[in-house]
Amino acid sequence: MRRQVVLVSLIALCIGLTVWVTSMDRVGIMFPFTWEGMAKHAQRHLQLVFVAEIIAIAIGVPLGVLVTRPGFKKLAIPIIGGASAGQSVPSMAIVAIMVPLIGLGFRPAMVALIIWGVLPILRNSYAAINDINPAIIEAARGMGMTRGQIVRKIELPLALPVIMTGIRVSTVVLVGSATLAALVAGGGLGEIILVGVFVGEPLIILQGGAPAAAMAITMGFILERIERWMTPRGLRVKAEIS
């Protein structure tokens, strides 16, 4: 209940700010972005996040699972270690390094977001499979499940919630990082923020920042719901410690 209050008031605050600024006649020396402009930028923002996220999932989940398999275990340390180290590289650095490699526009922004988005997914997918109690797998083997059956009936259902956590974290991070796409002319709500920065007008910064925040919070909430729904009932009793 209390959580819902926190959640709803934060989202309401963000949306309220957005509506307030957008409906102003004039902000300092300039006009605020129009509703159409807002919609266009928000759409581009979502497009960046979704496309990057889907590609990140397509790379991260299979790769994370693959390195838990016998025969590929040697790859786990460099790949997973690299992914954790990679998370300590600031997102702005990744965006910046893309510019000389790919140039300006939608593509470098997308590549940077994919790299940044794949890291938590990779880590969680690996941990999800790797942390399953070996006794459970052995019990399954002992009862005569085939490899495929163990993957389908035991490993996947047990790992899914943890993988889903990785996807949630990655999506939320991407909504934030996508604001940086504007730096390399990738579009999205970050562009509004940048205009605000250039003219030194905090309200314009908010006009781009507040809807981005609302987007991040809402997506985090929705994905958490999906995650809980995917968690088998027998596992929900356990307390979570991140």
Partner: peptide, 12 residues
């Protein structure tokens, strides 16, 4: 989860 640019705007 809030994008840092948004927080900056809010603080400014």
């Amino acid at each position: 989860t809030i994008p840092s640019l948004a927080i900056f705007g809010f603080l400014m």
